[in-house]
């Protein structure tokens, strides 16, 4: 296999992966719905469910640490946390059904659930 062919194959592979990323993004974007509630799970177990249209703040206690969830203006965000990387805080706010904030060190997942119009779950089923 000469050099030109390997480089051509590299470019084809890269193009295919970029198209795949774009197609995935488009698919998820077209299927999005506004959220109705926010669910909080720790290690896969549901610990709380809150309406997205009411401002609230909820401390999430886990075995490994605490996260502070804030719901404001129909969007949920992690206000603060004592995990080492603070990625959950940096991820910003979520508002669309199916979007989630994940705190890997504490195994916390905050997910926006679909409103009355169905949402990601309905599309996935």
């Amino acid at each position: 296999m000469d050099r030109f062919k390997t480089h051509r194959n590299d470019v084809l592979l890269i193009a295919a992966l970029l198209i795949l990323a774009g197609a995935l993004a488009l698919f998820l974007r077209l299927g999005r719905h506004s959220g109705g509630t926010v669910s909080v799970t720790v290690g896969g177990e549901m610990v709380a469910e809150l309406p997205l249209d009411e401002d609230a703040s909820l401390p999430i206690e886990t075995e490994s640490g605490t996260n502070l969830l804030v719901i404001e203006g129909a969007a949920a965000r992690m206000e603060s946390a004592d995990c080492p990387d603070l990625l959950c805080v940096k991820m910003g706010a979520i508002r669309w059904a199916g979007e989630s904030i994940v705190c890997l060190p504490h195994q916390v997942v905050v997910t926006v659930e679909g409103g009355p119009d169905g949402g990601f779950d309905a599309a996935a089923r």
Binding site: L18, L20, A21, G22, L24, L28, T41, G43, G98, F120
Partner: peptide
């Protein structure tokens, strides 16, 4: 692994950005 450990399939939302960033 995250899907397995956190028992949620919602992480599909990260696939596009992680596919792009991996590339």
């Amino acid at each position: 692994v995250a899907v397995f450990l956190l028992e949620t399939t919602r992480l599909a939302w990260y696939l596009p950005v992680l596919c792009l960033s991996g590339t």
